[in-house]
Simulated assay, not measured.
Amino acid sequence: MSTDLRLEVSVDDQQMRVFRGTDIVRTYIISTATKGVGFQPGSFRTPTGNFKITDKIGADAPTGTIFKAREPQGVWTTDSPPTCDDLILTRILRISGLDPENANSYDRYIYIHGTNREDLLGQPNSHGCIRMGNADVIELFDLVEPGVPMTITPPSNHRGKLFFFDCDSTLSTIEGIDELARVRGEKVYQDVVALTHAAMNGEIPLTDVFPRRMEIIQPDLETCEAVASLYIETITPGVRELVERLKADGWTLIILSGGFAPLIEPLARELGIDHVEAVPLHLDPEGRYAGYGSDYPTTRNGGKNEIIREWKAALRPNKVVMMGDGVSDLETKPDVDLFIGFGGVVRRPLVMNGSDLWIEKMSDFATDRI
């Protein structure tokens, strides 16, 4: 019986080992999360600590069975059309956390499952679950029963380099929230622009500015889509080339913004940036404004620091860089190895004087300097 088995997952090695006593009886190549380790719901990070297998789902299902909400929804094969989806295939072993910090893992739907991206096993590439090869997950499924203990060991090795970009007046020449205000008329636009500049210059706390601006604007779907397109139309000269150089040098790129995620995500896709940390924006089924993520860190001063620290804890990077134009960007300086002030759109003296490096053209930044 499997009750004498235990599982150990190494984030550093990207391996799962099956032990019987002190003997290793199986070793599997796996993938944990691209975004590293963590415990927050919606973080797309793999939790660490002590767990147990709770549910077994998919017994006798054909290899490649696609599960959605733990129900079979057809079969994926290598001849299926290409997809970038993180498909849950073949078998599901659902786990529960046994430690206070990972006790939400069951509700986060953290699984061990088969994947359509077997080519990426051996490197962190999941959305938080533990991916396995489809033949391997069948073998493991047959080996274990509910109650089998599992440990996910947090990383001890440093991995990669993180480069955070502000969005507005950095990657793009616009301030998205000002453009959302423009459709409400000139007076509203001027009022919101004044609030934005006051916040970026450090004159008014972001915590005060955010609700005041959104109460005035209340953007609908049509307005949001227009501004999302405008972000792409106004990409700062030299950004595309800089992004390509950084990616070629092995940097993980993250947009870190006090703007709204649904408006910025198309820009990120256009630039080939995989990660966006920005404020949720809510619309009702008719496309009317229904609020925003008022508790999201970047709606308040110091919030960008919180997100940077989460990434650092999750990945243990070798180096961290931030580039931005505003005071909320400059605030991140204690949590990064290099702060680059960008003055190519708006030149803020406070940011310029506080920067480790100041540039006014993206082409002025030589990546070999970092």
Results as ranks from 00 to 15, higher is better:
residue 341 G to M: 11
residue 111 Y to R: 07
residue 27 T to K: 08
residue 102 N to R: 01
residue 356 D to N: 11
residue 62 P to T: 06
residue 194 A to L: 04
residue 58 G to P: 00
residue 334 P to D: 11
residue 227 V to C: 03
residue 220 D to E: 09
residue 96 S to R: 05
residue 202 G to H: 12
residue 323 M to K: 06
residue 236 T to R: 04
residue 268 A to M: 05
residue 121 L to H: 11
residue 284 D to F: 15
residue 367 T to I: 13
residue 291 G to E: 09
residue 33 A to N: 02
residue 78 T to C: 01
residue 82 P to A: 08
residue 160 G to E: 14
residue 329 D to I: 05
residue 126 S to F: 13
residue 152 I to N: 00
residue 349 P to E: 15
residue 121 L to I: 05
residue 233 E to N: 03
residue 362 M to L: 03
residue 216 I to H: 05
residue 103 A to M: 14
residue 231 Y to N: 02
residue 258 G to V: 12
residue 14 Q to G: 13
residue 90 T to I: 03
residue 156 S to I: 06
residue 38 G to Y: 13
residue 298 T to V: 10
residue 33 A to H: 05
residue 339 F to N: 01
residue 313 A to Y: 15
residue 303 G to Y: 15
residue 160 G to S: 09
residue 77 T to V: 00
residue 55 D to E: 07
residue 78 T to H: 09
residue 316 R to C: 07
residue 361 K to H: 14
residue 150 M to L: 04
residue 260 F to H: 07
residue 57 I to N: 03
residue 179 E to F: 07
residue 117 R to W: 09
residue 249 D to G: 09
residue 245 R to S: 02
residue 253 L to W: 06
residue 352 M to S: 14
residue 370 I to C: 08
residue 72 P to V: 04
residue 192 V to H: 06
residue 353 N to Y: 04
residue 322 M to L: 07
residue 10 S to I: 05
residue 69 A to K: 15
residue 149 P to M: 00
residue 185 G to R: 04
residue 185 G to Y: 00
residue 114 G to D: 05
residue 365 F to P: 01
residue 229 S to F: 03
residue 321 V to D: 14
residue 119 D to W: 15
residue 166 D to Y: 02
residue 320 V to H: 08
residue 232 I to N: 00
residue 325 D to H: 09
residue 15 Q to R: 12
residue 363 S to I: 02
residue 96 S to C: 06
residue 16 M to C: 02
residue 69 A to T: 11
residue 92 I to M: 03
residue 137 V to T: 01
residue 154 P to H: 08
residue 49 G to A: 03
residue 369 R to E: 14
residue 247 K to D: 14
residue 4 D to C: 07
residue 65 T to H: 02
residue 268 A to Q: 14
residue 115 T to E: 00
residue 277 E to W: 07
residue 356 D to G: 08
residue 268 A to E: 11
residue 48 T to G: 00
residue 249 D to C: 12
residue 144 V to F: 09
residue 24 I to H: 01
residue 25 V to I: 13
residue 45 R to K: 14
residue 63 T to M: 06
residue 145 E to D: 10
residue 228 A to H: 12
residue 15 Q to P: 07
residue 365 F to S: 00
residue 262 P to W: 07
residue 258 G to A: 15
residue 41 P to E: 13
residue 316 R to V: 12
residue 291 G to F: 05
residue 364 D to T: 08
residue 6 R to L: 01
residue 136 D to G: 02
